[in-house]
Simulated assay, not measured.
Amino acid sequence: MTTEAAGAGALLAILRDGRARTRTELMQLTGLARSTVSQRLDALLDREWITPAGDAISSGGRPAVAFAFNGEARLVLSADLGATHARIAVTDLKTRVLAEHTQDMPISQGPEHVLGWLVDAFGALLDDCGRTLADVCGAGIGLPGPVEHGTGRPVNPPIMPGWDGFDVSQWLRERLGAPVLVDNDVNIMALGEHWAAGDECEHLLFVKVGTGIGSGIITEHRLHRGAQGAAGDIGHIRVLSAGDQLCRCGNTGCLEAVAGGAALAARLRALGEDAADARGVVQLVRSGSPLAVQLVRQTGRDIGEVLASLVNFFNPGVIVVGGDLADAGEHLLAGIREVVYSRSLPLATQHLTMRGRLLGDRAGVVGAAVMVIEDALSPQAVDRSVTTG
């Protein structure tokens, strides 16, 4: 493959905005010679990354052929594995969900059991789509614990016995025959919500309130993972209301120890209410339980205490609240807003929006797909694909 064709990835990056363009338009945008543009387009066509648009564009002379990004060229496998349940999906390269499945799947059953199920479940979804693993460009996996993103290995995950140091990426790659990217579940949810919010949302903080509490940080349209992938673990920040309450991490006084779904459910059970987990708490709120409503509102205030400091420090434009407890509706958000607006600097909250998630339970699988798509369609990766055939 020629040097000119090897720059095809940058051309594809332009076409990914969804607008079809002619050779002449691409020459004007890039400043490249017509022959160079043609060679790069031919390379992208050969790999089916682009396709001729349906209608030729005419300016009075011979109609010019326009080219558009082919979102159906490859498939992506994505999985959002939570503490007790899993959601998986097959998407195209525009994150359109082609098939999906949810199932109770305790992460505590260990990596080989859970990942073995995942491989079989992915196969079933591909069958539903009439496609095979040969059509897959990659898989994205979200796990409910700290993950070293560069290696795809969980690191001391508190609710994932047997997973510490397990090479999730390699184990799955050997069975799927495609690259596998792994991240913390809150990070992939943040990616999904940022994707849904669009380009105008430059700085976003996603807060997951479920069995535990965590956050994902988007700054300048990029996910911030930190040096080792541990950024955003706000559930273990100390809060005054927690006192000396023991947390599952081994420390005392953590936000999660008083505001996590497991902690709320335990407190409601001690008060005579039937709440097995975070979802049980939400059911009580929806049924009008005064105790549940009061506790969820206070949970919002406790979370708001931590978020007020983060708003001053990070100055996000949007805070999105997700996770199982987010389904409790305005009770949780009202508690958060009450404290954030009263304790954060006026400049930091001047244009701040706090809202629920746009994607609902799909945020994780969409975000996992985004993680894979951005990797597979990076200019460098596309150049490799067109030069290796």
Rank of each mutant, 00 (worst) to 15 (best):
P346F: 05
F314D: 00
V90A: 05
L255E: 04
S78T: 10
D383P: 13
A8T: 08
T3Y: 15
F69K: 10
E174Q: 15
L223M: 04
L32F: 13
Q28D: 13
S287L: 08
P379A: 14
G260E: 07
S289M: 03
M189A: 14
V372N: 09
R384W: 11
D167K: 08
G329F: 01
A227F: 14
V207G: 03
L172S: 00
R222V: 04
W49Y: 15
Q28L: 15
L181D: 05
L333R: 02
D199F: 13
L81E: 05
A89E: 06
P379M: 11
T51M: 13
L44M: 07
E220C: 09
S385W: 06
F166H: 12
V339C: 02
R297H: 13
T299W: 03
G116F: 15
D46N: 11
R62T: 14
N70G: 04
L284M: 09
I336A: 01
H85C: 05
T22V: 04
H236N: 04
R21T: 03
V296M: 14
H194M: 14
A308K: 01
I188K: 07
R131N: 14
G61R: 11
E256L: 02
S38N: 11
S342P: 04
P316A: 00
W163I: 08
Y341S: 03
S108L: 13
V147C: 06
P161N: 09
V180G: 01
T349K: 06
G71T: 07
F206M: 12
R238E: 01
A196F: 02
V209E: 04
A68V: 07
A368V: 03
I188E: 12
D383C: 12
V119E: 04
E174K: 15
A257Q: 09
A5H: 05
I303M: 01
V258P: 01
R225V: 11
R297M: 08
T51F: 09
A270F: 06
Q380Y: 05
F69I: 10
G142P: 14
A8S: 14
R87N: 08
L26V: 02
A68E: 13
M354R: 02
Q228D: 06
L125W: 12
L81K: 05
N315M: 02
G260Y: 02
V97E: 09
I373K: 00
A230M: 10
V65L: 12
C137P: 03
Q298S: 13
G253T: 08
E374F: 02
I373M: 08
Q28E: 14
V136G: 07
V339D: 03
D135R: 13
N70F: 12
A227M: 12
T36Y: 06
A376P: 00
A68D: 09
W171N: 04
A196V: 02
S378N: 07
A10W: 06
E4N: 08
A242G: 08
A196H: 09
R238G: 00
V386M: 05
N184E: 00
V136Q: 03
F314I: 12
A196Q: 11
H221N: 13
A376N: 03
S58L: 09
W195Q: 13
F67L: 00
G235N: 08
G7A: 15
G300T: 11
G356T: 09
R173M: 11
H149V: 10
A259D: 07
T91Y: 07
S287Q: 14
V90W: 01
Q294S: 12
E200C: 09
P161L: 10
